[in-house]
């Protein structure tokens, strides 16, 4: 049986991902950032709607995570706090549908290309691999 490679979508704000995506992401690839994690940049994670996060699951994501500024250091003051609330709302909704709420997670990271940015992706990759395919795909046992 082939290894399960999860489809993971990461929504990152402009500030936390700016340097990460420089050089066409070459440094990102060299750093060990999982290739199955797709980056979706938004001006501010506070702009992310619950429906956008749910759409990611509709489109086949096995896991979703959001990377925003540190709680009290958001460029847009409360953007990452809003994002965290919306991630929590999706976690609650997943729970209502009897799907693992940990398939979506919020990270608050400093600006710049830090090892933590890669570590977050690796952590989600490991977590979702352990969970298996998302039940919304109709492939789970």
């Amino acid at each position: 049986m082939s290894e399960f490679i999860p489809d993971i979508k990461a929504f990152c704000c402009h500030y936390t991902s700016q340097q990460t995506c420089a050089d066409n992401g070459e440094n990102l690839q060299k750093s060990g950032f999982p290739g199955n994690v797709s980056l979706h940049r938004v001006p501010c994670t506070g702009k992310l709607q619950v429906s956008t996060l749910l759409k990611a699951f509709e489109e086949g994501a096995d896991g979703v995570y959001v990377v925003g500024c540190p709680v009290n250091k958001c460029h847009n003051v409360k953007g990452s706090q809003r994002a965290a609330k919306r991630v929590a709302a999706v976690q609650k909704a997943l729970g209502e549908l009897a799907v693992e709420p940990e398939r979506i997670r919020m990270y608050h990271l400093e600006r710049g290309f830090h090892p933590e940015f890669v570590a977050a992706a690796q952590e989600m990759d490991k977590l979702v691999k352990a969970l298996g395919p998302c039940p919304f795909k109709g492939e789970a046992q």
């Binding site: 429906s51 749910l54 509709e58 909704a93 549908l97 009897a98």
Partner: peptide
């Protein structure tokens, strides 16, 4: 409208899960 969009997603996901 916003809540319609959210609930629509949730219902589609829920039913997809049920096959």
């Amino acid at each position: 409208e916003r809540e319609v969009e959210i609930l629509a997603s949730l219902l589609k996901l829920g039913r997809k899960k049920e096959g």
